[in-house]
Design a binder for these strands. Structure first.
Lengths: 234, 234
DNA sequence: AGCTGTCCTTGATCTAAATCAGGAAAAATT
DNA sequence: AATTTTTCCTGATTTAGATCAAGGACAGCT
């Protein structure tokens, strides 16, 4: 019998509607599929890419999650991204041809590996793929700039609300519950990402729980009052 | 006699080495040049694009400068970018086909207008142009994420130092002085962008002047001790 | 040149969130 | 199952930067 694990294709991947092949015709998708390879599963804390390493592949997250971070002058981690299934990892490295951050699994994570050379060739021939690539980068750019706007000049609870709503939206986009989900990152990771101390994250989660906006149990979060959370996020 | 103003071409534009055509062959550059149009000059405070307007062109800044901003729920401006000569405006709108921010001239500004449809066609045929587009988006993405990292969790003086060093680098890249330059944005704009109040910007500039790190005279800034500024930025 | 509105600076006060501290609960490792 | 390590929570204290306040310097107008 054929091992099904070794035969994952874009055509039968549940993430396809969100991922790179989302707007491709059947034929185009099949062509893209031929260049895509599977990557061995990562365990929690495994590194996918290291800053400065040459960029050879873009990675598509199939399941699990990761964080990307840089190290500042003092070797302190600075988280710049969380990646969920359907996300592509590596766009920020295209300009230099080298990765500019570390990317580490937050839990057991499965990935597809897309060789850049082949992708570039394909994008010459497939206008839809080319536009999709541009579009995904553009979205990431927008999200990143939005984040800037919603962190600067905003109170701690607004930042955290924005973060939770962003996650909620992304889970919902993936066909999962946007109301009830698991945080694969620690409170410290969240604080690092949105510029707050762990204690502040913890306190605000507790407060929102008391105010019946959230229900928090360890890593599990349930949004009880989406409207109030949205009002908080501003 | 031919009016020279009406005959600006990539081939004789001083910004070409930084701008979209930077890596193109002579022939490719000439082809790109045929689709590029000039935009009428903007005066200070003129809007180039409005949020929600359909995206038809990318704009390349030839001279002058602009700021991009969104409006939050309460109609408060939130600056997400400053554009200098050689920069391209509009990348964050590719995904939706609509602009997602307002872009306004900070001074008299000259621009080139690049029709998106033609650019897409060209990028199918010109691999170097395609990669250049991707590369420019990637750079912008990286800068944006870097900024996130260097604003979060950082003291006010480190933020401002980072901002000034970023400007300095960009001026230097453009063949201008990285040591002595003019701020085309107000203190309030800077504060808005890096998440500090006007007063704090003003105070830190004064302090850095007293400490002989900077020389500030209205809009003019001279960096006296680059090393100390870099140490501050961390 | 003089007027008007915006922009910048400096000082005094206040406050939100960081830091310090300690303990409890999970999770990983043995 | 027991032990170690990491993560999370809550309280007390401190502090960096916001806010309030007011005067002075520019820049754009007429």
């Amino acid at each position: 019998m054929v091992n099904t694990i070794s035969h994952i294709h874009c055509q039968n991947c549940s993430m396809a509607p969100l991922c790179l092949p989302k707007n491709l015709s059947e034929g185009d998708m099949a062509r893209l599929d031929t260049i895509i390879q599977r990557h061995k599963p990562l365990h929690k804390k495994d590194l996918l890419v290291t800053a400065d390493a040459p960029l050879r592949y873009l990675y598509a997250v199939r399941s699990g999650s990761l964080k990307s971070y840089t190290l500042d002058d003092h070797g302190v981690e600075q988280i710049i991204d969380f990646h969920l299934p359907g996300d592509l990892v590596g766009f920020d490295a295209l300009a230099t041809g080298r990765h500019r951050s570390f990317t580490q699994a937050l839990e057991t994570t499965m990935l597809c590996e897309i060789p850049l050379n082949s992708l570039d060739d394909l994008s010459a021939e497939m206008p839809v793929l080319r536009r999709e690539l541009m579009s995904m980068m553009s979205s990431e750019l927008y999200t990143s700039k939005q984040l800037l706007g919603s962190l600067n000049n905003r109170a701690a609870d607004a930042r955290l609300a924005h973060f939770l709503l962003g996650l909620s939206q992304r889970f919902a986009d993936r066909g999962l519950s946007g109301k009830s989900f698991r945080l694969s990152m620690t409170r410290a990771d969240i604080g690092n990402y949105i510029g707050l101390s762990v204690e502040t994250i913890s306190r605000i989660l507790s407060r929102l729980q008391h105010e019946n906006v959230l229900l928090v149990e360890n890593k599990l979060v349930e949004i009880l009052a989406m409207d109030r959370l949205e009002r908080l996020a501003g």
